[in-house]
Every structure is written in structure tokens, then in C-alpha cells.
Deep mutational scan, measured.
Amino acid sequence: LPLEERVTHFRDMLLERGVSAFSTWEKELHKIVFDPRYLLLNSEERKQIFEQFVKTR
């Protein structure tokens, strides 16, 4: 999958899993780590997309 598509899937997962915009990566990790979409991005990309996600929520 192209990166753009993987990012979209990852963001959808964050929304569906009820990730809080007022929380930290560490506190929200347990909600998403077992979702197959979690593995679409490498660890650096995951954290970066998470940070963007919480800023725009």
C-alpha cells in the first residue's frame, strides 16, 4: 500500500479505537497495539501520525 493510504488506515484506526486527543502515546497504545492496522507504519511514522492526530482533534 502507498504511504498515504497506510496513514489513512492508521488515522481511521485511531478514531475507531477512541484514542483521546488529550492523552499521551504511551497511555493510548494499549487501545491500538493489537489492531492489524497498527503495523502498517513503522514506529517513527506511528508516533508522528499520532502527534498530528491529537493536535487536529
Rank of each mutant, 00 (worst) to 15 (best):
L1Y: 15
L1F: 15
L1V: 08
L1R: 11
P2N: 15
P2H: 15
P2W: 13
P2G: 15
P2C: 15
P2L: 11
L3P: 11
L3Y: 14
L3R: 15
L3I: 15
L3S: 03
L3E: 14
L3C: 01
L3V: 15
E4M: 04
E4D: 15
E4V: 06
E4S: 13
E4W: 06
E4K: 14
E5F: 07
E5T: 05
E5I: 12
E5A: 02
E5S: 08
R6A: 13
R6L: 04
R6F: 10
R6E: 00
R6Q: 02
R6I: 15
R6D: 02
V7M: 15
V7K: 15
V7H: 09
V7C: 05
T8M: 08
T8L: 07
T8G: 09
T8E: 07
T8I: 08
T8F: 10
H9Q: 14
H9T: 07
H9S: 12
H9W: 09
H9G: 05
H9F: 07
H9V: 10
H9M: 15
F10P: 10
F10H: 13
F10W: 06
F10A: 03
F10Y: 05
F10L: 03
R11Y: 10
R11H: 11
R11F: 10
R11N: 09
R11G: 05
R11Q: 10
R11L: 08
R11T: 11
D12K: 12
D12S: 10
D12A: 09
D12Q: 11
D12R: 10
D12H: 07
D12C: 05
D12E: 15
D12I: 11
M13G: 01
M13E: 05
M13Q: 06
M13V: 09
M13P: 10
M13C: 02
L14W: 12
L14N: 00
L14I: 08
L14R: 02
L15C: 07
L15A: 10
L15M: 06
L15R: 14
L15D: 12
L15V: 11
E16G: 01
E16T: 01
R17P: 10
R17Y: 13
R17E: 07
R17I: 01
R17H: 13
G18P: 12
G18E: 14
V19M: 00
V19G: 03
S20E: 05
S20G: 10
S20P: 06
A21L: 05
A21K: 10
A21D: 02
A21N: 12
A21C: 11
A21W: 05
A21P: 12
F22L: 12
F22W: 14
F22A: 13
F22N: 15
F22K: 11
F22M: 07
S23G: 09
S23R: 01
S23C: 15
T24M: 05
T24H: 09
T24I: 03
T24P: 05
T24C: 14
W25R: 06
W25C: 08
W25I: 08
W25K: 04
W25Q: 02
W25D: 00
E26H: 15
E26V: 01
E26R: 01
E26F: 04
E26L: 05
E26A: 04
K27R: 10
K27T: 03
K27M: 01
E28S: 04
E28T: 05
E28W: 00
E28I: 00
E28M: 00
E28Y: 00
E28D: 03
E28K: 05
L29A: 08
L29D: 06
L29Y: 15
L29N: 12
L29F: 11
L29P: 03
H30A: 03
H30Q: 07
H30L: 06
H30E: 10
H30S: 05
H30M: 06
K31V: 03
K31F: 05
I32V: 14
I32L: 06
I32E: 04
I32W: 06
I32Y: 13
I32F: 07
I32Q: 04
I32C: 07
V33E: 12
V33T: 08
V33H: 14
V33D: 11
V33Q: 15
F34C: 12
F34G: 14
F34Q: 14
F34D: 15
F34N: 11
F34L: 13
F34M: 12
F34E: 15
D35S: 00
D35Y: 03
D35E: 04
D35H: 09
D35W: 01
D35P: 03
D35A: 00
D35V: 01
P36K: 13
P36I: 00
P36F: 07
P36G: 06
P36V: 03
P36W: 13
P36R: 06
R37M: 01
R37D: 01
R37C: 02
R37Y: 08
Y38K: 10
Y38L: 06
Y38M: 02
Y38I: 04
Y38G: 02
L40W: 04
L40Q: 00
L40P: 03
L40E: 07
L41M: 09
L41Y: 02
L41Q: 07
L41G: 05
L41N: 02
L41A: 03
N42V: 00
N42Y: 03
S43Q: 13
S43R: 11
S43L: 12
S43K: 12
S43P: 13
S43F: 09
S43D: 06
E44M: 15
E44W: 11
E44S: 11
E44R: 11
E44A: 13
E45G: 07
E45K: 09
E45Y: 05
E45D: 09
E45R: 07
E45I: 10
E45M: 12
E45P: 02
R46Y: 11
R46Q: 06
R46W: 13
R46V: 07
R46C: 04
R46S: 04
R46T: 01
K47H: 12
K47P: 02
K47W: 05
K47N: 06
K47D: 02
K47G: 09
K47E: 05
K47Y: 04
Q48A: 12
Q48R: 11
Q48W: 12
Q48H: 14
Q48L: 12
Q48F: 07
I49A: 06
I49G: 04
I49F: 07
I49S: 03
I49C: 10
I49Q: 15
I49E: 09
I49L: 13
I49V: 14
F50P: 00
F50V: 01
F50L: 08
F50D: 04
F50Q: 01
F50M: 05
E51Q: 10
E51P: 00
E51K: 10
Q52R: 06
Q52C: 08
Q52L: 07
Q52K: 10
Q52W: 04
Q52G: 07
Q52D: 14
Q52S: 11
Q52M: 07
F53Y: 14
F53V: 02
F53C: 01
F53R: 01
F53T: 00
F53H: 07
F53P: 02
F53K: 02
F53M: 00
F53W: 12
V54G: 04
V54R: 09
V54Q: 07
V54D: 09
V54P: 01
V54N: 06
V54E: 01
V54L: 06
V54T: 12
K55R: 10
K55L: 12
K55P: 00
K55D: 06
K55N: 10
K55E: 14
K55V: 09
K55T: 14
T56P: 14
T56E: 15
T56N: 13
T56H: 12
T56F: 09
T56I: 12
T56Q: 13
